[in-house]
């Protein structure tokens, strides 16, 4: 039973990898939201700046210059602070995305290598060799069993079909 389900296991792995790959941006943004808890502070700062700007609009520059200048300086200071904050957050976001991508690719590579290792000598499924007559060696690679479908061939086929399906339904 385990042997007969090898093709399904490989197919499932490929499907899973492709789905996770498609969901990677969402995963990274979710992780960012979880890890970056100072987003609220940023929102607060934005709100404050907006309030101060509204206040600035009500002040006459000629009548109350000192107050106007003080408020303007305050707004500038807050804006600079916000800019620095946003910059650092963006850098952190890029770093998180990069780490997530790297982790995913490492995991995918590990999974594929382990699958190939496991089914190196055994075919994922077997059909009568005359059915795939001129190409049986190619299809059976690297197992070398006549009529068998090798892991490489099956991986290639699965990847192509899953990509097509995701393209059609995604």
């Amino acid at each position: 039973m385990a042997e007969s389900c090898a093709w399904l296991l490989v197919l499932g792995s490929v499907l899973l990898c492709n789905i996770v790959k498609a969901l990677l941006p969402s995963v990274s943004s979710f992780l960012c939201r979880v890890l970056q808890k100072d987003a609220e502070q940023e929102t607060q700062m934005r709100f404050e700046i907006q309030c101060m700007r509204q206040e600035l609009a009500t002040i006459s520059m000629m009548d109350e210059f000192a107050r106007y200048a003080r408020l303007e300086r305050k707004i500038n200071k807050m804006t600079d602070k916000l800019k620095t904050h946003v910059k650092s957050r963006t850098a952190q976001l890029a770093k998180i995305k990069w780490v997530v991508n790297i982790v995913f690719y490492v995991l995918q590579a590990t999974l594929m290598i382990s699958l190939i290792w496991k089914y190196y000598a055994d075919p994922v499924t077997v059909v009568p060799s005359k059915w795939i007559a001129p190409l049986e060696r190619l299809v059976a690679f690297p197992s070398g069993i006549a009529g068998g479908v090798g892991i490489t061939c099956w991986l290639v086929v699965c990847n192509k079909v899953v990509a097509l399906l995701l393209q059609a339904f995604g």
Partner: peptide, 17 residues
């Protein structure tokens, strides 16, 4: 052609299984 071949072979193996 390669995509067709992949789809054809995949369907064939799935049907067979």
């Amino acid at each position: 052609v390669f995509t067709d071949l992949c789809v054809y072979f995949f369907t064939f193996i799935i049907t067979h299984e």
